[in-house]
């Protein structure tokens, strides 16, 4: 009896209570696949197909365009400033929220979510109202020769504002679930605050931090609405990649537009590939930490 049990093919294994019939499963997976295919994958594919429609030469030529090159440089520069700033401030804010009790904590939590809930265009407009020529601080700034709106600082500020929640939102739930006892343990063992931060707290959240930073980076490079308002669309100076794509597209330069779009999409995909690769490389360590 025991023998024959073991020889039974797998499909005859007793059904789990939660499993569904084959038809249901095919249907559910099919719907999900179809949806993702048409909504996500197909457009992405189109970008690359459209870009390469006339072969590679026009693409390479469109990357020779000085305005396009300047847009790529600016996008990378903005991301290089905005992402580290958001990583540091997001980390500090999450630490404060997850580990300490203080007045106004809920207000701070709501403020962190604000950039998610308001339209990016509004984020841009508030900076214009604040720093623009007729804004609250505009006259003072211009009398000191500081340019923010229609210049790189404005673009950086708008990007920081829009992408701020990514890091904090990843970290806060994780830090809250981990509690404070490991940090307390480190302190009772004689560790200094900095030692505790770098050896206990940071390693415990490093994966969530990395994930937040990668998402933040992808979004920072792709931000359109807020940047569009504060940038002023000065070619070769304040155009980022998304803005450059729009300009090229409106000028019926489809190859150019899709070439830049393909590059932007590739950068975003690269970000996700990097994340998956890291997760795969450190799978063991991740599992060991999560089970605890």
């Amino acid at each position: 009896m025991a023998m024959s049990d073991r020889l039974l093919p797998l499909s005859h294994a007793p059904k789990r209570a939660t499993s569904e019939t084959l038809l249901t499963r095919i249907l559910l997976i099919g719907i999900a696949g179809l949806f993702l295919g048409t909504i996500l994958f197909l457009p992405l594919l189109t970008v690359f197909v459209e870009a390469t429609r006339k072969g590679w030469t026009p693409i390479l030529e469109s990357f020779q365009d000085p305005d396009t090159r300047s847009a790529i440089r600016l996008t990378l520069l903005v991301a290089a400033i905005a992402v580290p700033v958001n990583a540091v401030i997001g980390l500090a804010a999450s630490w404060a929220i997850a580990k300490f009790e203080f007045r106004g904590k809920n207000l701070l939590l709501t403020l962190i979510d604000l950039p998610f809930s308001i339209s990016p265009v509004i984020s841009g407009v508030v900076y214009v109202l604040l720093f623009g020529a007729h804004g609250w601080l505009g006259p003072w700034l211009s009398s000191h020769g500081i340019e923010i709106i229609f210049a790189v600082p404005g673009i950086v500020l708008a990007t920081i504002l829009v992408t701020f929640p990514f890091v904090a939102r990843e970290l806060i739930p994780l830090m809250q679930s981990q509690g404070t006892s490991e940090e307390e343990a480190a302190l009772t063992l004689g560790a200094s605050g900095w030692y505790t931060f770098f050896r206990v707290m940071l390693p415990n959240v490093k994966w969530a931090l990395l994930y937040g930073v990668l998402l933040c980076n992808a979004r920072a490079m792709g931000e359109f609405g807020a940047v569009s308002v504060v940038s002023g669309h000065i070619r070769g100076l304040t155009n980022t990649m998304p803005l450059q794509i729009e300009i090229l597209y409106n000028e019926y330069n489809f190859v150019g537009a899709f070439a830049v779009a393909a590059l932007l999409a590739a950068l975003a995909l690269l970000t996700l590939v990097a994340k998956s690769a890291l997760e795969w490389m450190f799978a063991g360590e991740l599992a060991a930490c999560r089970r605890h």
């Binding site: 343990a185 480190a186 009772t188 390693p203 060991a288």
Partner: peptide, 16 residues
Amino acid sequence: ERRIGFVFQHYALFRH
């Protein structure tokens, strides 16, 4: 400076 040995209820071992 207190140098106390504290064992936490759920141990609070450093998981990583």
